[in-house]
């Protein structure tokens, strides 16, 4: 926990510096008669973020904040494994949406989650993994007229468009 607290504070301090540097692309100073320039708002807020990070680091050194005193693990091995599996499979799913679209990618994720992490029967898993894309298609594409990304599976939907739209 102690290490994680320091690492997060330093990472966020670096991020604040990056934001400050990026803000300078627009005038950050005071334009006479008009007030602050376009970059001033984000610049000074990022500077405040940096100050906060420094305060967090100072409190870490002084052991003033609860996480900097805690001897507990930031994530125990079991939690880390679970986090890696869930966050990892989410990332893979979002990545796959680019290629095979949401209607294939989402059910694959659900099958993985329910079968591998949950250990549910194929009947349950199959039912939910089939129902979800069907329901989302009717709700989003037909009712809301929001086209969800389909990637290379787009041609498969042409007949459906013909029927419902």
């Amino acid at each position: 926990m102690r290490v994680a607290e320091l690492v997060m504070a330093i990472a966020m301090a670096v991020f604040s510096l990056l934001l400050m540097w990026k803000s300078t692309e627009l005038p950050i100073g005071w334009i006479p008669g008009e007030g602050p320039g376009g970059g001033a708002f984000p610049f000074w807020l990022s500077a405040a973020m940096l100050l906060c990070c420094i305060a967090i680091i100072v409190r870490w050194v002084l052991r003033a904040s609860p996480p900097s005193r805690s001897t507990e693990a930031y994530m125990d091995p079991q939690a880390l494994k679970l986090f890696a599996l869930v966050a990892g499979s989410l990332t893979v799913m979002v990545g796959l949406i680019h290629i095979i679209g949401v209607y294939i990618s989402l059910p694959l994720f659900m099958i993985f989650y329910m079968r591998v992490l949950g250990g549910h029967s194929w009947k349950t898993v199959g039912g939910i993994a089939t129902a979800t894309p069907v329901v989302s298609f009717f709700f989003f594409e037909i009712a809301l007229k929001i086209e969800l990304p389909k990637g290379m599976t787009e041609p498969l939907f042409y007949p459906l468009y013909d029927i419902f739209m």
């Binding site: 680019h98 989402l106 989650y113 549910h120 939910i128 979800t132 989302s136 990304p149």
Partner: peptide, 29 residues
């Protein structure tokens, strides 16, 4: 373990729908 993937799925579609951009989906993640 049944509710979680359903809610994750709702988040992904819900994150995409307002702006319809994959960029926002990655940001959300």
């Amino acid at each position: 373990t049944i509710l979680a993937p359903l809610i994750f799925g709702l988040c992904v579609i819900g994150g995409y729908a307002p702006t319809r951009s994959m960029h926002d989906l990655w940001l959300m993640l």
